[in-house]
Design a protein around this nucleic acid. Structure first.
Lengths: 116, 116
DNA sequence: CAGGTCTGCTAAGAATACTTAGCATGACCA
DNA sequence: TGGTCATGCTAAGTATTCTTAGCAGACCTG
């Protein structure tokens, strides 16, 4: 019952194994050097670029989101973001129309400041 | 009425303007150095880390996805092809770790669908 | 003016993603 | 045996993100 969470390294390594591809085959397909792929599968890379994760995801046919998550990258969610602290304090909770008006006002302030 | 397609630099710069924040205020909130923010707003940074884009997105109250897109990072396709059938076809031979990851992914999908 | 603070900017350095070059092992074949 | 290839790995170098340190101008206040 080991629910050991997979690391990015092990996940990518096993995914390649399942696909039955060699490092150099992956290199040929993705343009990512086999040396780098080896390092990646040995956990020596902390945060690979999303671009590369995407290439590997489509090649291995695994969800891109999972690689992103395992890499520690924030995943773009359709759900809205929580209210930001400092800005929230500045503008409080407002309707969308009020927010638009406030944005205009802030732009005006900034513009005037620049004019000086 | 010509809506010029914004670069990441201009977008982030204007977003900060709209929020009425200084570079150092953003630094204080996000932990990203003001020097780097300045470079970012002048187009001297090509692909900022998603982690940093996420911080800026929530602070400026702009969609994270937009920043990702402007930065050239691949974004997960909304719901067009959530479960890759190639993996499903292979499920009989996946490892336990991969199975766990798949379960996580399905939970993520359900939650997202529920979210909005 | 003199001194202080706030703003944005840049030069230089540190950290690290990623590549190039090449080594070691093993399989296959004459 | 000897040769050639395929495979994975590592050392060293390059490129780029991100930080630290500090400068220059604008705005105050005395």
């Amino acid at each position: 019952m080991t629910k050991a969470k997979p690391t990015l390294a092990t996940f990518v390594s096993q995914a390649r194994g399942n696909a039955g591809l060699t490092l150099r085959a992956v290199e040929k397909e993705t343009g990512i050097s086999n040396a780098y792929l080896s390092q990646l599968e040995h956990g020596k890379i902390q945060t690979p670029a999303p671009q590369n994760l995407h290439k590997l995801a489509s090649l291995y046919r695994v969800p891109y989101e999972i690689l992103m998550q395992l890499a520690g990258h924030p995943i773009p969610r359709p759900s809205s973001d929580p209210p930001p602290q400092s800005v929230a304090a500045r503008i409080g909770s407002v309707t969308r129309d009020e927010e638009d008006a406030l944005v205009e006002y802030l732009q005006f302030l900034r513009q005037r400041k620049k004019g000086r």
